[in-house]
Amino acid sequence: MRSFYGTDLPNPLMLGTAQYPSPAILADAFKRSGAGVATVSLRRESGGARAGQDFWSLIKDLGVVVLPNTAGCHSVKEAVTTAHMAREVFGTPWIKLEVIGEEDTLQPDVFGLVEAARILSDDGFQVFPYTTEDLVVAGKLLDAGCEVLMPWGAPIGSGKGLNNVFGLRAMRAHFPDIPLVIDAGLGLPSHACQAMELGYDAVLLNTAVAKAGDPAAMAEAFARGLEAGLLARSADPMEPRDMAAPSTPVIGKAFLS
């Protein structure tokens, strides 16, 4: 697994912290999955200086790396302000940068994203940009100072998995040295497994776990899916082919009977 701005993670699971039935269940999901990173949104909790303190201290108590995000920000200015607040609250230069461009699909405004990424990188932030699988945008994000890319699998919360496998595979091939994280759209552990099989370094998800009937069990299922994908990747998978390749010899078999 590639490191993220010099930090090695214990496993490829980054878990969001929103929408769980309770903070206790959230903590359980982290415990059972062993997720190494918790993303936390500041935007909605920002109702005043110290208003979110109770929840933030619960997140800190998880004992995992915190990746604050700018979820819900629709402009460069909002995202930059939120990133500064996050750095103050959590004392980390990491920021998952979201600049939302479309309310219905929550897809990133890639123009605003590149601009905000440049401003924040110049200011010493280590930016994890939520982007699409577009290679040109990806290149511009790297130029802006990002050392990690987080393409979407599918729209946030849709649970549709890897929508454009071709595009994601191309991205992996195009940026062989950049840590890549599938961010958003995963619904099932098999999707996470597939991301690992494609050579991705991590996945970030929230709704698929938080809104499962048993979030902690689903978190563990995702951890196992990731483990399977990672193991498969390292085991050098076979190449698909067009014709059947019998796994047992046919010579000498009475195949005309």
């Binding site: 920002s46 109702g47 208003a51 929840f55």
Partner: peptide, 13 residues
């Protein structure tokens, strides 16, 4: 349902 203690005011959002 927001994970924060309330201020005096309701947000526009």
């Amino acid at each position: 349902m927001i994970e924060a203690s309330a201020g005096q005011n309701v947000s526009a959002r």
